[in-house]
Design a protein around this nucleic acid. Structure first.
Lengths: 409, 409
DNA sequence: CTGCTATTTGTGAAAATCCACAAACGAACT
DNA sequence: AGTTCGTTTGTGGATTTTCACAAATAGCAG
């Protein structure tokens, strides 16, 4: 029966606890939370390695160290077992030999304790010390997590305020962000992912963490603030590429759980001023709305700036309704289809979607090219239009898509 | 020296005067105004012909009689000479033999006196009676014309009220129209013709009379209420055809005075309820506005319903401005043109106007077809667009036309 | 059943489009 | 002067489009 090493230190804070562990193991100790942010470290370790030094200075474990440890399966081990993991030195990332253990409550990992092996080797005999240390750290980390949750909550509330346009001063926004420890990227956009019946934040958690995004959940939607961390490039392309990459990752992941088409994503334009976040949000909402209305037409498109005519469609429709404008031409064609059980409207739409290429149209409709040609001639007669005229062709295209808004709902 | 036949009847009204003339010539007399509306007729003519009977019953000379008299050159004679014109019988239109004289002041013809030859022949000896009768009628017709002018004025004011949407009750509109002797057609539309520096009502007077239109003049514009007199056909086509015919006549006439393109015309949709006249007017105004902005694009088009995409263009533009949307793609192309002194934008516009037909485009631009193909490839690279994609092609088309709104003003 | 009409499919030839490649040209730069 | 680059024009051949005409099919009314 081993002694209870930490009984007498129940009132000690995390830093004192690190010192106690360090004394017991005679080696430098570092304590991190689940996100690898530095929580505490033993103070009288005289010698240390590059990795620990960087961690303490940056208040977080360096990215390249984390990447390496993930790659080598160290975290996988830590996440799945209660016992300490002995890690050989990885000189390429400045990491000396050390032992680590996860601080966990039930299945949740709250953080990690790292003991560097520099003054003396750490053997299996020391494992019990680390196990007890991890247990002793739990209550302190839960407290800390509570604080973080509250802070996270305040951040989300602030993001909602921004999304709803409650703030009008850039300066005040930046001040408040600073106070909430939110690092606002110099250029950003709002992206929305929607999937009915899925707790999106849970499924996407790893990706959200990876890209350090701010987000809020609104019913079936998750609303993401995506920014460029490096302000070097001015090109808006970079931001677009980042969000497309993120969507590619997320949708790929989500579509393993729900069928394709059940997941919808859209994003607004990129802005620099955070007073305009409400615009990017509205644009993202618009994009999502349109994607629901025209899933086939703009499959694979997520950006508001890529919507093309569909960006105007709802407005135009609305305007038509306001002034009681009806498209008699299209109505005539529909009536013809009903009367003769033909598919003129479908033919026209396919033809227009194919940008007037007859062979493409004929293929898509599975009809002979001359049948198509005949139908197009009939359509021109029935509707009294000239399909060679770009103005007429374009307005027909718009009207056709507008008409679909009525049909499909 | 012949006697002064009418000296003693200076206070007599027009009907009494007709009786006096009838007594002198021993024949039935009819007096009409310039528009062939019945003004007065002698009462104790016992026998008469079909034409006179119809004129009195209908309070206007029947159309077919007028047509025939125009065709036979009778009116041409009456309009150009002061003397009575002796007219042989025209049995096909129920017109017996008669003599007519114009009532004129200076060059203006105020009306006509008709003397039917039924009781006794009217000879050259009676000409002096008719000459004096015409002279005697002048003052009375001027008075009458004054009244008509006032009534005309009230009609125009009423039309303005309708155009501006001041009336909301169909019943009241019809009552007021009735009281103003305005026969409202069962279906109508508003047409506007505009030509700077031309008194349009003067130039178009014959046409306006021919079609019995109501109209008001507003600066350089004349606003016409065009209706279908025969309510038999329900087809809106008939109305459209009528206005197109009218415009063809009017513009043809006007363009002999001013250069083509200086005259602009547009018309709204057809309606049945006169509470909607304001809509037709607004649509006509919109059509005129668009025709000024895009003279080349919609040359030969006048109807609001034919505007196609141009109907939406201003709204879309306005919306873009409201939400601060800028077309970076197009701007990039323009910049390229400026930098390299190329004509990519023009090329793109011509290509789109030609609905993507390369040979048409190349011809219009006077370039080799391969040059065009090269330019299109470059445009796709520069703008990062896919011209084969109908959505992109259409939105480019819209954006291009919208951009022209900025450039040309 | 028999015309009648609208629709679909087939054939073939002329016209247009697309594509790859090459040559010529002019402006800018070294 | 020579080089480079973007642009224009030319050539030839495969592919697509367009058009006219004919034949087959299906639905419908007398």
């Amino acid at each position: 029966m081993s002694p209870n090493y930490f009984q007498q230190y129940q009132d000690a804070d995390m830093d004192e606890l690190a010192d106690v562990i360090g004394d017991l193991l005679q080696n430098p100790i570092t304590v991190e939370d689940a996100d690898h942010k530095l929580i505490a470290y033993s103070s009288h370790g005289d010698s240390t390695d590059q990795a620990r030094w960087s961690t303490i200075m940056g208040r977080r474990v360096p990215e390249k160290v984390l990447t390496r440890l993930w790659k080598d399966g160290v975290f996988q081990e830590l996440l799945t077992q209660d016992d300490p993991v002995h890690i050989p030195a990885k000189d390429e990332v400045g990491l000396g030999k050390r032992v680590a253990i996860a601080i966990r409550r039930g299945n949740d990992v709250l953080g990690y304790i790292w003991a560097q092996e520099v003054n003396r080797p750490i053997t299996r005999d020391d494992d019990e010390i680390l196990r007890q240390a991890a247990k002793a750290a739990v209550s302190r980390l839960i407290q800390r997590q509570g604080k973080r949750k509250a802070e996270e909550q305040r951040r989300k509330e602030f993001l909602w305020e921004l999304l709803l346009g409650n703030h009008h001063s850039e300066v005040i926004i930046r001040q408040k962000a600073e106070s909430l420890q939110m690092h606002l990227a110099p250029s950003y956009l709002i992206c929305i992912i929607e999937a009915a019946g899925l707790r999106l934040d849970q499924y996407l958690y790893p990706l959200l963490m990876r890209d350090k995004l701010f987000w809020v959940v609104d019913g079936p939607q998750i609303i993401l603030l995506i920014g460029l961390t490096e302000p070097k490039k001015e090109k808006s392309n970079v931001l677009i590429r980042k969000v497309e990459q993120f969507l590619s990752d997320s949708l790929g992941k989500l579509e393993t759980y729900v069928s394709v088409g059940q997941v919808i994503a859209g994003y607004g334009r990129g802005y620099k001023s955070y007073t305009e976040i409400v615009k990017s949000y509205q644009e993202a909402l618009h994009a999502v709305k349109i994607k629901k209305l025209f899933p086939r037409e703009i499959a694979g498109i997520h950006g508001y700036h890529e919507l093309g005519i569909y960006r105007y469609l709802l407005k135009c429709k609305q305007w038509d309704e306001e002034q009681g404008y009806e498209n008699e031409r299209l109505e005539v064609l529909k009536q013809y289809d009903r009367d003769n059980q033909t598919a003129m409207q479908e033919t026209l739409e396919t033809f227009l979607d194919a940008a007037g290429k007859v062979n493409v149209t004929a293929q898509r409709l599975h009809i002979h090219i001359n049948t198509l040609s005949y139908r197009l001639r009939r359509i021109e007669e029935i509707m009294q239009v000239d399909l060679e005229n770009m103005n007429q062709r374009t307005s027909l295209y718009l009207e056709l898509k507008m008409a679909k808004l009525n049909e499909e709902q």
